[in-house]
Design a protein around this nucleic acid. Structure first.
Lengths: 339, 339
DNA sequence: GCCAAAAGTGTAAGCGCTTACAATTTCGTC
DNA sequence: GACGAAATTGTAAGCGCTTACACTTTTGGC
């Protein structure tokens, strides 16, 4: 198969009757290009189907035309959803989307940060999805010269989109309290350690505080975001002898796991125990899980848009913004008034 | 942050006392480099902390160092799973993974094939996941000069990895028949039209044939791969007045939907109706759904490896291979002997 | 109309690497 | 030892793009 010659900027220059330099400027919407030239170039470029070589642009000091999405894992529902939404936005803005999954492994994660400078040569920007960062990592990201935006990461020096995690947790907990439950267990995210002050945990605690209740350590257990994690966590809780009448899981998958564990121990939901999560996973509707819904695709698309904006006006100093999208309590069949 | 000058191959050449050319070859383990030179270069490079500029390598070498994964949608469980597995393989081979989701939209799909040549300038290879192709599209893919491999696509002129879909469907159907069911409904994939001869449908039919049963049109309905699709399909089946005692869904998500619809119509599973799918989605275990398990991540990884091989020896003429991985019937709680 | 300033355009020098091909060294053989 | 082949190394020409700077054209004020 004969490979047709690549369409270079040279070809566009010839077709449009202008110099390479002018074409280059026109293509990047730089000043000092007459409207006429602009038009000619645009026309020639589209006729030729010209796309700048990322490698050449980058080498010459320009940009790559691609961005990377970094997720702790690509398989989880939340991430797949956010990734696809972001990919659409990036594609519409002319960027290729490079996927980088940290695969929930510390080693991969470490390697990622070690190779940051190298990565900066291949992409213009970074969209981080719920990657928790040390302060050195934040510094490294700022130093590498890429535009950065994120989803679900509070308190970072770049644009972020997320939900008010503390409020969402408060909504879920408040719902349980309203139903008359006061022996509340929590399956908390253990990103950092077993019992830590994640925003969702804080929201849980605040709701209890408001009802003059305190968090009992035996009713708190750390868990990952998978069904299996949730199941193990709930099993441990039961093994401890904890007898909560309601359980708040930090995400729906963990709640599914809790549901399983409860069933395995002969406890029926919501008769004996009420369960609520956060997410509104499509399965939640199917299973009748009460939850606090969050707009996942919207978060991905929004953050992607912010990143694209940053990519356009690089030099403009810009105050990092933090956008919080609304969450909504959805009562279904796993929560019920305490008998 | 002052950016120190980048360490170039030139620096390594000077330090090692060799020419740039020799350094380049040594660094890439090409032949015709003495051991002594090899050693000197390695030493100088590591002392300088030299890392080749990806952009420059690519520009000079003619390759892009990235591959694209193309999926009909990125959100479905199967694709997220396969994508992550492939991404890992590509990453380990030094390739960036560009994600392209067709978003289940004909327009996006059309655009993708229209831009193929353009895409060929940005990636070296293509991994297609279950993209059904017209013969012109196959030709276009062959003509664009990219290395191609695929998952779940039979009869294509490049390496493919999949399962024996017909056999998997046969296994599922056979299981239902063994349990004494003969009024079987099928939620068939409607990629092309409502009732078509997809491999899975053929497998379903063959199992019936073997038992001297025929497929009744009223018991066949086309459906997409989502829960909601499955629910609609099952609802339609019930509305038609079809009273199957068992249902075979072409994938687990569709089976979940069927489960919902059945429950909504007061039919209990497996008491009144048995249900089986294909996939072994993690939720299936949770819900007790009988299914035919397929190794999803393995398929993605395998195909990715094949693509990497093709990328290495480009010119070698190569017979396209088709690898079929094993599937396994998993009996759980949604299938039961007919009463 | 004239001239300086502004606006638009072109020239050419790289960016850091790969790779023909030429030049040099090494080796084996008679 | 001498000689040709083989192995090793170096030279230099790009890869496709950006950008400082020089150059040409337009503009506007008087």
């Amino acid at each position: 198969m004969v490979r047709t010659h690549r369409v270079t900027i040279q070809d566009v220059a010839v077709l449009s009757g202008l110099s390479i330099c002018t074409v280059s400027r026109a293509l990047r919407n730089l000043p000092n290009v007459s409207e006429k030239a602009q038009r000619q170039v645009a026309e020639a470029a589209s006729k030729l189907g010209y796309k700048a070589s990322a490698a050449a642009s980058r080498l010459a000091g320009g940009t790559t035309g691609s961005v990377a999405i970094v997720a702790p894992t690509a398989t989880a529902w939340f991430f797949a959803q956010a990734v696809e939404a972001a990919e659409e936005v990036f594609g519409d803005s002319g960027y290729d989307t490079v996927l980088i999954s940290l695969r929930n492994k510390a080693s991969v994660r470490r390697q990622f940060f070690a190779d940051l400078e190298e990565l900066a040569q291949r992409v213009d920007g970074l969209l981080l999805l719920n990657v928790d960062l040390t302060s050195q990592e934040v510094e490294a990201l700022e130093a590498c010269g890429m535009a950065v935006a994120s989803v679900g990461m509070g308190n970072v020096p770049w644009d972020n989109v997320g939900i008010d995690d503390e409020h969402a947790a408060w909504q879920a907990t408040q719902h349980l309290l309203r139903l008359g439950h006061w022996d509340l267990a929590v399956l908390s995210s253990n990103e950092h350690s077993v019992v830590t002050e994640t925003p969702r945990f804080r929201g849980f605690k605040r709701a209890l505080d408001e009802h003059h209740l305190t968090v009992h350590p035996d009713f708190v257990v750390g868990t990952g975001p998978s069904i299996d994690d949730g199941r193990r966590a709930m099993t441990e809780l039961i093994a401890r002898g904890a007898k909560p009448t309601a359980v708040f899981a930090h995400c729906d998958e963990a709640a599914f796991g809790a549901l399983t564990a409860l069933r395995e121990h002969g406890l029926s939901v919501p008769k004996h125990v009420s369960v609520i999560g956060i997410d509104d996973h499509p399965m939640s509707w199917f299973l009748g899980l009460s939850t606090v819904a969050q707009p996942v695709a919207d978060q991905g698309a929004f953050a992607a848009n912010l990143l694209c904006e940053r990519l356009l006006n690089t030099e403009a100093s810009h105050q990092p913004s933090n956008h919080l999208l609304d969450t909504k309590l959805i009562e279904r069949k796993t929560t019920r008034h305490k008998r």
